[in-house]
Amino acid sequence: MNDGGGRQFGPLGTTLVIIPTFNEAENIKAIVGRVRASVPAAHVLIADDNSPDGTGKLADELTVEDDQVHVLHRKGKEGLGAAYLAGFRWGLEHGYGVLVEMDADGSHQPEELPRLLTALKGADLVLGSRWVPGGRVVNWPKSREFISRGGSLYSRVMLDVPIRDVTGGYRAFRRETLEGLGLGEVSSQGYCFQVDLARRAVKAGYHVVEVPITFVERELGDSKMSRDILVEALWRVTTWGVGERADRIRGRRKG
């Protein structure tokens, strides 16, 4: 976690909570309602990947009931990273000062969002962390906890980033941070997308803070985690880590 160097941070501006969806008809109304109750001033953007279960239609109904809810209809399922990148672009184009990543299934509790936003007053990026003191997971099998903890540890060591929960997806960014991360160069998905943004933020010198959260396993709908996502994460993290080490070695030789 960077210490911020004693610098002053500007006002936050309006918050946009981006919620990517694919087949989340059972969850979308409840999660949007909880966000609006927890942070009434925040706006919500539902980025739906043309869900065949009718999630997009339900999202449209929410926009009629609440003018602080918006929908971004996408052509099809292109992955978590692509959905967030589209949501970031939409939010930046519409002038939001804070952009939040949040899952649709309730695993990221909206009631904890005020604490992330409070921490963002003195940071460039705030991560909701399961693996710092006070953080925890609920209803996870030990095997999944082992994979998640191991993935964060491997990423932290390989990429030399001082973040305990590198793969977590509950995050609050200042718009200036996103604008400085080179989003046009990001092509990774899933776990790997989260690792990629975290490493970019650290390497760019942004002040990154981790806030403990309670991660609750979804009760409704199906998890989007897959073997392909895990394999991509392992391959990309290894490639980035080896590449960065090679660059440092070449730099020392030239020096």
Results as ranks from 00 to 15, higher is better:
Met1Gly: 15
Asn2Gln: 11
Gly5Cys: 07
Gly6Gln: 03
Arg7Met: 11
Phe9Asn: 11
Pro11Glu: 03
Pro11Met: 04
Gly13Pro: 06
Thr15Ile: 02
Ile19Gly: 09
Thr21Gly: 06
Ala25Asp: 12
Glu26Cys: 06
Asn27Ser: 13
Asn27Cys: 11
Gly33Pro: 03
Val39Glu: 14
Pro40Ile: 12
Val44Ile: 15
Ile46Phe: 02
Asp48Met: 01
Pro52Asn: 01
Leu58Trp: 02
Ala59Ile: 07
Thr63Ala: 13
Val64Ser: 09
Asp66Ala: 11
Asp66Arg: 05
His70Asp: 02
His70Cys: 07
Gly76Thr: 10
Leu80Val: 10
Gly81Glu: 09
Ala82Ile: 04
Ala83Glu: 01
Gly87His: 02
Phe88Gln: 05
Leu92Thr: 07
Tyr96Ile: 01
Tyr96Leu: 02
Gly97Pro: 06
Val98His: 02
Val98Ile: 08
Leu99Gln: 15
Leu99Arg: 09
Asp105Ile: 06
Ser107Glu: 13
Gln109His: 05
Glu111Asp: 15
Glu112Ser: 13
Arg115His: 11
Leu116Val: 09
Leu120His: 10
Val132Ser: 08
Gly134His: 08
Lys142Ile: 00
Arg144Ser: 07
Arg144Glu: 14
Phe146Trp: 15
Arg149Val: 09
Gly150Glu: 04
Gly151His: 08
Gly151Ser: 15
Tyr154Val: 13
Asp165His: 15
Asp165Cys: 14
Val166Ala: 11
Thr167Phe: 02
Thr167Tyr: 01
Arg171Met: 15
Ala172Val: 01
Phe173Val: 01
Phe173Trp: 14
Arg175Gly: 07
Arg175Ile: 03
Arg175Glu: 15
Glu176Ile: 03
Glu176Leu: 00
Thr177Asp: 04
Thr177Gln: 02
Val186Glu: 03
Cys192Glu: 05
Leu197Lys: 03
Ala204Leu: 00
Gly205Val: 10
His207Glu: 06
Val211Asn: 05
Ile213Thr: 15
Val216Gly: 00
Arg218Gly: 06
Leu220Arg: 10
Leu220Ser: 06
Asp228Ala: 15
Asp228Tyr: 00
Ile229Glu: 09
Leu230Cys: 08
Leu230Gln: 12
Glu232Phe: 11
Glu232Ser: 15
Trp235Asp: 08
Arg236Met: 07
Thr238Gln: 06
Trp240Gln: 14
Glu244Asn: 05
Arg248His: 09
Ile249Cys: 12
Arg250Met: 14
Arg253Tyr: 08
Lys254Asn: 07
